[in-house]
């Protein structure tokens, strides 16, 4: 029997002051799968990914994590789930008043995951992994955008999440630093991390995605392996979008 998807979403609906951001979205991510979500600006990608960790509360629809339905109104339930779901934002959102090390150790310590010593050891391990071992005592403001984003990824990884959500992680970066972040995400994918990535980096999507999901006007228009989407999209809207962006 097939394992339950790690995250499954059915009939997700969300409106903002009359604007339908999500209009009945079905979506799922299997354990170990890398899903890249593509679509025009304003199509609902962020709203979808933010529903997956409770930052946006849907008006309707259901979300199952590990086969269990989430009470989407319960902030307490989301708080516990968020300890298993990492999130990386476009603007990194590092805490500017804390050193890199403290940014990374804050949540493991404060959620009771780890002792300060354990958290620090893990943080140093993760900093080595994101190739910034010498930046432990730096403040975010002293780092380049790409370095900050790598720290933000390390911060999320420090909670040892089962899945990582990325909302346009390279959109705010200078072209020179985009690759260092994409390289890191590639290596996470290779290590089997489950990932949902909203991205406009089509080359990257083609290379690392197990599956691509194209969203338009709050609906999933088409989904499939990268070749099927990038070469042989069935839907006209998908082809039109790709023609514009590629």
């Amino acid at each position: 029997m097939a394992e339950d998807p790690l995250i499954r979403v059915r009939g997700l609906v969300k409106s903002f002051q009359g604007v339908r951001a999500l209009d009945g979205v079905d979506f799922e991510v299997a354990r170990g799968e890398v899903v890249v979500v593509i679509g025009q600006s304003g199509s609902g990608k962020s709203t979808l990914i933010r529903c997956l960790n409770g930052l946006v509360e849907p008006d309707d629809g259901e979300i199952l994590v590990g086969g269990t339905a989430v009470d989407t109104h319960s902030q307490r339930e989301w708080r516990l789930l968020r300890q298993r779901i990492g999130m990386v934002f476009q603007d990194y959102s590092l805490f500017p008043h804390l050193t890199v090390l403290r940014n990374i150790t804050l949540a493991p310590i404060r959620t009771g995951r780890a002792s300060p010593a354990e958290a620090e050891a893990l943080a140093r391990e993760l900093l080595a992994r994101v190739l910034l071992p010498e930046k432990a005592d730096a403040y975010p403001g002293e780092l380049s955008g790409g370095q900050q984003q790598r720290v933000a990824i390390a911060r999320a990884l420090a909670m040892r999440p089962e899945v990582m959500l990325f909302d346009e992680p390279t959109s705010a970066l200078d072209p020179e630093t985009i690759q260092e972040v994409l390289d890191l995400m590639r290596s996470l994918a290779r290590d089997g991390m489950t990932m949902v990535i909203v991205s406009h980096e089509m080359g990257f999507a083609r290379e690392v995605a197990d599956r691509v999901v194209f969203i338009d006007r709050g609906r999933v228009v088409e989904t499939g392996p990268p070749v099927a989407i990038f070469r042989d999209a069935r839907e006209e809207r998908t082809r039109a979008f790709l023609a514009k962006i590629l």
Binding site: R79, R82, Q83, S93, F95, P96, H97, L106, A107, R110
Partner: peptide, 29 residues
């Protein structure tokens, strides 16, 4: 910024911890 709160909550921190560890030190400045 709203992003600070979302970042803290996304890490599974309680709202009061966000207030104490992030919003108060940043707001006081």
């Amino acid at each position: 910024s709203k992003g600070m709160r979302e970042a803290a909550l996304s890490l599974g921190l309680r709202p009061l911890l966000y207030l104490w560890l992030v919003a108060i030190p940043l707001g006081l400045r």
